[in-house]
């Protein structure tokens, strides 16, 4: 929406000499329009002139200026953006200017698909030299909203298409230091350790990442993000997930605190389904929890876990009941 200041200054197209040759094209809503919008006069007039240049396919400077005004009024109009790109190409406009234009409106409309798509188009044309500026820009948006989906997607695209991986893991660390519950930052961390050409991939990073994640879990066992991340570190390698003691150890540690242990039980259940052989201590700890929560002391460990979860996690009791009834036959 244009601000009131803009409204005061705005001269209607009909009074602008440079537009005197253009006949505005009204919207064809039909005799009985549905979901009709009571447009302000400014909006209606701007769109009438836009339709005129769009239909005439006029790729001119004044057409570019017109799209600027139309986008200012409704940045979600993808037709206007699409036409703007055609004009930009035809006029061979310096795209650095275009980037400044997007900077301005993106902050106010940071959840708009069109702006981010346009930004990607511009950055792609500018090439690798644009990487720093793009990373800086997304960082600015993420400082306002650390979970902005579009900003993260754009950032990943920049890294993969234009480069700039050098400080990305540090950036993830910083964001997680600010807010260890920020799942978007965990997701970005996963993206970096699996895809950065500088780090050697998941296998090379696994040990240090497991340590980092275990520490995060023990500090906040109620935080789901590191639990899912931990599983992710073994994606595609279930045998290693089952055999790596660090995984069952963190489950055991959390279970022993007797507090916030839903995610520990849930992970342990998956381990058992994958063929994990639990230690006596682990069995004892779970059975102790089972005695206070349920009356299924003679059942196998996986069944006991499901029964405990049905009780302590009642929002998911239907899910845990289904899991209990669908345990692989050879599970401990």
């Amino acid at each position: 929406m244009s601000s009131s200041d803009d409204d005061d200054e705005r001269i209607p197209f009909i009074q602008r000499p440079e537009w005197s040759d253009v006949r505005p094209v009204p919207q064809d809503d039909g005799p009985h329009p549905i979901v009709p919008i009571a447009y302000h006069d400014d909006f209606r007039e701007t769109m009438d002139y836009f339709r005129a240049v769009y239909l005439a396919d006029e790729r001119s400077r004044r057409a570019l200026d017109l799209t600027t005004e139309a986008i200012g009024m409704n940045p979600a109009n993808y037709t206007v953006w699409h036409f703007r790109r055609l004009v930009l190409e035809a006029l061979n406009v310096d795209l650095h200017e275009e980037r400044d234009f997007i900077d301005e409106i993106a902050v106010r409309n940071s959840k708009n698909y069109q702006i981010w798509h346009h930004r990607r188009w511009v950055a792609e044309k500018l090439g690798p030299q644009a990487a720093d500026k793009e990373l800086e820009f997304t960082m600015m948006i993420l400082a306002l909203d650390a979970k902005n989906y579009h900003a993260w997607s754009h950032r990943q695209w920049v890294l993969q298409s234009l480069g700039g991986w050098e400080k990305e893991l540090d950036y993830c660390c910083k964001l997680l230091e600010d807010d260890i519950f920020n799942n978007s930052a965990w997701n970005q961390r996963y993206f970096v350790i699996t895809r950065s050409p500088l780090l050697g991939g998941l296998q090379a990073m696994r040990d240090s990442e497991v340590s980092y994640t275990v520490e995060a879990i023990l500090a906040n066992p109620q935080n789901e993000s590191p639990w899912r991340y931990l599983r992710g570190l073994y994606k595609g390698d279930t045998d290693l997930l089952v055999s790596d003691n660090q995984v069952s150890d963190v489950c055991l540690k959390v279970l022993k605190t007797n507090h916030n242990y839903i995610f520990a039980l849930s992970l342990l259940l998956d381990l058992l389904c994958y063929g994990f052989q639990p230690s006596h201590e682990l069995k004892r700890v779970v059975q102790f929890l089972g005695k206070t929560e349920t009356d299924s002391s003679d059942a196998n460990l996986a069944t006991t876990i499901c029964s405990i979860l049905e009780t302590v996690d009642p929002m998911r009791s239907n899910y845990w009941a289904w899991r209990k009834n669908n345990l692989p036959s050879q599970v401990c």
Binding site: I34, V35, I37, A38, H40, F43, A76
Partner: peptide, 17 residues
């Protein structure tokens, strides 16, 4: 009511009718 008339603030959904 919305089917029959929408206020001016709906112009942000003008490309989503």
């Amino acid at each position: 009511r919305g089917l029959k008339q929408l206020g001016p603030s709906y112009h942000v959904l003008d490309a989503n009718r």
